[in-house]
Design a protein around this nucleic acid. Structure first.
Lengths: 146, 146
DNA sequence: GCTTATCGTCAGCGTCTCTGACTATAAAGT
DNA sequence: ACTTTATAGTCAGAGACGCTGACGATAAGC
């Protein structure tokens, strides 16, 4: 047999993550969102319902504000977000999802859920649910302590 | 409460994956492998004990041979792999891990295992083991069918 | 032998992240 | 009030890393 050790935990996370992303963003393109890319997820996951500032989003996403500004700018060019001056702070701007942005966000959730169910058909919906549960615990453990 | 839906499965995979990688490659730098980066893992995971060809590694990793050549070249410059002509095929080259390359691979496994145990301390070693098991099943389900 | 396929390279490009330096505004200290 | 310090965002430049297309060299199939 192979002399290589067992797969690392990182490998076990990486493969499904990459396969899912490939499927997800291909599906998104098919559903009318061709120019939304994986990196943009940093925007969708950090923007708030009523709009957010670039710096805040950058901090939540764990990237620099320059990087976040770059991503936001590209989504603005595609019409998924609007950028307006912040009424309370002359330095700041407020980034908000447009209708197209909300529609895209909804499509991401829908396709994600669909794909999760598809995976469940492979390993069993019950095991899939258990997997999600364990991953949620793991994710929560980062926020709690650390 | 928030009106945002539950985290997607992709989000649940992404966060631990990114946190682990940050920890892993920081640790790797501390252990004397400062110039090994995440992208290089495509080399370490696809290279065989007795050496491999660039095209084969590219195919296994799911990237173009140009991209694999780029990664291999950068590891060769740092001394982790050697590149020799293939004795059986005048077109091809054989890429092999050097002693430093094997040492790095070993360090990756050691640090990964250490981190996995650390996560286990957070959510429970037993739950962590179950999580690994489910992820292994999920990974296997890609190779089997699809 | 001639044709076709494969191995690897060169050149160029797009995306995405970073650092460092900067302007404008806001907040805090005195 | 004025000065200092912190913060929001921008501009410029760089590096990493994936891609495509075009190419020369060798191998394999007919």
């Amino acid at each position: 047999m192979a002399s290589k050790p067992t797969k690392t935990f990182g490998d076990l996370l990486r493969h499904p993550y990459e396969v899912m992303n490939a499927e997800l963003y291909a599906g998104l393109a098919d559903h009318g969102f061709p120019d939304v890319r994986l990196a943009h997820s940093a925007v969708f996951r950090t923007i708030e319902e009523d709009g957010s500032r670039i710096s805040d989003m950058a901090e939540r996403a764990g990237i620099t504000k320059q990087s976040m500004a770059y991503l936001v700018e590209s989504l603005a060019e595609s019409g998924y977000v609007s950028i307006d001056p912040d009424p309370d702070d002359g330095r700041a701007k407020r980034v908000s999802l447009t209708d197209a942005g909300f529609a895209c966000e909804a499509a991401i959730f829908k396709l994600s859920l669909r794909y999760e169910r598809k995976l469940g058909e492979r390993i069993g919906q019950r095991r899939m649910k258990e997997l999600r549960h364990l991953l949620e615990d793991l994710n929560n453990s980062f926020e709690t302590e650390m």
